[in-house]
């Protein structure tokens, strides 16, 4: 086994208040290792609004601007404009939003920023529900999920919004999915995004949430890997909205990913088959857009 190559630099401070095993914390840790110290982070309401620390503490070694829930794209645009005017154009402005702040309440602001091709890096760390408020469904919550607002037999029967396609439809310069289980791939994408100066860039990072998903905290990374290996969350890149590169190809049935999770425990074998069909359909669509064969997900580790 070749050991994973991850930069030594650390911009996440100890003593933050993220849940034990928080995938979003790992995501931020990798992101900043990739981006380095010349970065400003804009955080709208989300788990990270808490994890970043309560006054007078901060858990990051880079400047943070907390922002209103719906405003990550716009606030980051303003920061960008100001830094450019101040003669600091090289500083990376990263909006760091959860799925609620990206797929739902912040979608308009994100869309505006991307349409304007703002020189910002927008990152959605996706834990597939409103976790900070107690696990309410978002439009990122996948089919089949139980949340506190899709409880018991009212489990969510609509599909997860495809945010990547939304962004691709904007013809965004660069959009990519990334997973905390594949740190090298993730860091490569963050650096690629960082270096694609002058354009809007979007990274969709899968960040497992043991608290909200009903899984033991030690399975955070394992689940993120299973999401990739089952094609539930394929790793891929889109340039200019049209040029697709698949980084991985799954090799496991969705059951392997669903079965360890409390939020899917109620699903019948037929429900799981339905989900498999949806995942297969999405995968076929994605395959059709990409050129060249993807690598096996296992080899990416």
């Amino acid at each position: 086994m070749r050991p994973l190559q991850v930069p030594e630099e650390e911009y996440l401070r100890r003593g933050h208040v993220g849940c034990a095993g928080c995938g979003a914390v790992i995501a931020m840790r990798f992101a900043l290792k990739a981006l380095g110290p010349d970065t400003v982070v804009v955080i709208p309401a989300c788990c990270w609004g808490v994890i970043a620390g309560a006054y007078p503490q901060s858990s990051l070694d880079v400047p943070i601007l907390h922002a209103a829930f719906a405003t990550a794209g716009a606030t980051a645009s303003g920061v960008r404009a100001a830094l450019d005017m101040r003669g600091e154009p090289d500083t990376t402005v990263m909006a760091w939003a959860g799925d609620g702040g990206t797929f739902d309440i912040g979608l308009q602001s994100l869309s505006g920023a991307v349409e304007r091709d703002e020189d910002i890096l927008y990152v959605c760390y996706d834990n597939e529900a409103y976790m900070n408020t107690g696990v309410q469904r978002s439009s990122s919550t996948p089919y089949g999920t139980r949340t506190t607002t899709t409880p018991r037999e009212g489990w969510k029967r609509t599909r997860k919004k495809n945010i990547m396609e939304t962004l691709a439809a904007h013809r965004i310069a660069y959009a990519a999915t990334a997973s905390i289980a594949y740190p090298e791939d993730m860091i490569r994408k963050f650096r690629k995004a960082r270096d694609l100066k002058g354009h809007a860039r979007f990274l969709h990072v899968f960040a497992s949430c043991p608290t909200g998903w009903g899984v033991p905290s030690e399975l955070t990374v394992k689940l993120a890997r299973l999401a990739v290996r089952t094609n539930v969350f394929p790793l891929y890149e889109v340039e200019n909205g049209v040029s697709y590169t698949l980084n991985t190809e799954g090799d496991l049935p969705v059951r392997a990913y669903l079965s360890p999770q409390g939020r899917f425990r109620h699903l019948s074998p037929e429900d799981i088959q339905d989900i498999q069909r949806m995942v297969d359909e999405d995968w076929r669509l994605l395959r059709a857009k990409a050129q060249g064969p993807p690598q096996r997900a296992r080899l990416m580790a």
Binding site: R13, R14, G15, H16, V17, A20, G53, A54, Y55, P56, Q57, S58, S59, I64
Partner: peptide
């Protein structure tokens, strides 16, 4: 101002364990 200038590293989160 609500502006943080200190590190979280004085929080001994090991007590959660």
């Amino acid at each position: 101002l609500a502006c943080s200038t200190l590190s979280t590293d004085t929080n001994m989160t090991g007590t959660w364990r």
